[in-house]
Design a protein around this nucleic acid. Sequence first.
RNA 1: GCCCCAGUGGCGGAACUGGUAGACGCGGCAGACUCAAAAUCUGUUGUUCGCAAGGACGUGCUGGUUCGAUUCCGGCCUGGGGCACCA
Length: 858
Amino acid sequence: MARYNFKETETKWQAIWDQRGSFIAKEDSSRPKYYVLEMFPYPSGRLHIGHVRNYALGDVVARFKRAQGFNVLHPMGWDAFGLPAENAAIANKVHPADWTYENIRVMGDQLRLMGLAYDWTREIATCGPEYYRHEQKMFLDFLKAGLAYRKESWVNWDPVENTVLANEQVIDGCGWRSGALVEKRKLSQWFLRITDFADDLLEALKTLDRWPDKVRLMQENWIGKSTGARLRFTIVRGDGSPAPDIEVFTTRPDTLFGASFVAVSPNHPLATDLAATTPALAGFIAEANRVGTSEAAIETAEKKGFDTGQRALHPFIDGASVPVYVANFVLMDYGTGAIFGCPAHDQRDLDFARKYGLAVLPVVLPPGQHGGGFEIGVEAYTGPGALINSGFLNGLEVDAGKAEAIARIEQLGRGGGTVQYRLRDWGVSRQRYWGCPIPVIHCEPCGIVPVPENQLPVELPRDVSFDQPGNPLEHHPTWKHTSCPRCGKPARRETDTFDTFFESSWYFARFTSPQATESGFDRAAADYWLPVDQYIGGIEHAVLHLLYSRFFTRALNHCGYLTVKEPFAGLMTQGMVTHATYRDHDGAWLYPEQVEIRDGQAVKIADGATVAVGRLEKMSKSKKNVVGLEKVVEAYGADTARLLLLSDSPPERDLEWSESGIDGSWRYLNRLWRMVSEPPVELPPLGAPLPEILSGAAQAARRAIHKTIAAVSDDLHKFHFNKAVARIRELSNTLGDLSGTGAGEAWVLREGCEVLARLIGPITPHLAEEMWQHLGWQTLLADAPWPEFLPELIADDTITVPVQVNGKLRATLFLPRDCGEEAARAAALADPAIQRFLDGKLPRKIIVVANRVINVVA
RNA sequence: GCCCCAGUGGCGGAACUGGUAGACGCGGCAGACUCAAAAUCUGUUGUUCGCAAGGACGUGCUGGUUCGAUUCCGGCCUGGGGCACCA
């Protein structure tokens, strides 16, 4: 029996697609456009099979939409700036550029093995000046538009990577790549005003109805909008002399009458000033700043305060005042760095008040409670209710109380309603070499001077040394020395480079016109192709790349670069590819190919020693549970790998890569191939007319074919790839069972084979082309339209109807479609099984759901 | 602590808007072909009682709504994810 020769076949069709330029995209207003994009990879070395899932998913979408008549853009490129290149340079004395381009070459070849329908003519690498020069221009435009600024601030310093990190890149107090505990440093840095768009970024999430709710929710939480008030307290010192006002932010202005203290952050100017003359306070602040930002540190850190001796005058109660504390739990970088505390209605304030013996006055009465008896114990009340003990607010509900309190604050000229976001501006300066130089010059007399556009790009120097720690650009002998474009005097280049999320924030636009030289992209091309109709990538970018790109697109829109504001209309986040992990008795990780299973026990092939099988984990080099892409393609071919990646789990869930799984996929490909290469009956020639008479079996098979077309089309549309594969397999089972050698059977079998080839085409494209050709077609399947089903073959004449007695299945009937309630009722009652369960009694009720179910209630 | 999501055979998973739970695959078992193996094909495969016909049970647990619940509602358990001195 001839095995399907995947090696020859896959090479052949890849060459043909390539020669014909099958997947090269051009703007074409006569067809609807469809832009499908997978998050482009960082060229880190080699791809393993886990990386490929993402691209396989996108490829199915691209090929399916193309067959459906869309003008599809499906490009691929390289997110090529990044720290691993520098680490490689340090470890292996290889230049980051050489290392990166070599990886691009290797990984590109690997991707090409998979037969992905990319328009390779649009391939980009972000580390080239022809790419990054445009983002330097964009940055200058942002600067002009006030969207970029420089400020000195406390930043997250990663001591391992020796660079600053953005807030989004700090996970649980540690660097997102290095895992090192992040330190706070005060540095002068470039920021992008993402907060200008905070509200728009939040509001527009509602319009992204083809994004997973989960990602929208994560962005919503990250932006963290809270509505409240700012309020300026008048402060007096212990001796009664006036001190500077303190402004607080609160979401509960309604509880002001319950205020019993004001607290400021240890880094608040008041604390700093006071510490200069109060050694005890200086000690307190130093201790507060020592407490780490890690989760554990925060959990265990005690809420502590330092009484400054100053008093804050109550804005609503003449003559009343509350103490002012410096408290270790108040953050300087949220709100105003100062709060007022209402212990009765905030748990943390309550804990603090109990500790320092401050008053706890309830001002919100829970519904159903009576004023006199309501007291706060160890738990603050944060629910709704009516205000009490609150002067002019008495009797109002919480929301009305907030509004009234804000109105009074405004009236008093002490502040007003405001909206506070958790989101901070995006710090984009990185003290690294392998990134895009920030195009500004520091001049002693002129200050910060943008590099004139005609001097762009500011290119990275190639001759750098990694001999000493820190930024090689800083150590470069000549590069940073230049002259000021404004005054001509000697000046110094900015040696920081952009955060590498800068490149990925606009690459999807670059793909629309990668040859553009005047600008990052042609406006017309970008307006034609954008937004990306379907974007596919990992959930780990839910608030990194996906938020930055949404902001960046708005910023580009603001500066007149393009028309859209949202870059990605549809988003799919795929799960990880996992594999069991193996360790030998020394605890060393083993590669899957070093291990085999003998008698249910995992052993090391080399010496037969037992191996501990660990749990399924994401394929990663560090745990060695990776399966090489070439190994799989060599042994089974790209189509087999693609089929397994698509069929085993729904895309958003994790997928377990297993040897038995790959065998199953490989068997199925051969089965399909045998159906066309060695059919049980000789198939009629291409285009043969439908025989006038079909046997019942042939007719039933034909119905199955058309139902499958309908179902698979729907599944692919909804990205239910695993279900689509299940239905395709079902159809081949049905066709396999089609015995009989008549002309009708042969004709239906041919129709079935053609449909199978077309339906599986997006998933296993090489095999599908081969089947298509074998069936006599001269044209490419890649150019064939998606099959259409005949509506008259979709609906059955006879319906299988379950009959229940008291909700339990007792019989199944075959009834004519839409036979009517009376007929259904009669048929059910006539059934012997039903009669037996009724036991001679009359049914109380019979429920008939047309063409669905009959339930007899006894 | 707060918010979100998910719990279905030995395993991955299916079940449209409340209507035959377990499609399809993996694995297992039995058989055919073969000197034998591989490959392939056929049958079978939720648990349980029964010789059988046919029952009973079964979608994390527990109540409820309904003629009927994997699906809706309440409470709980477990796992995963996000956020977190955020005022």
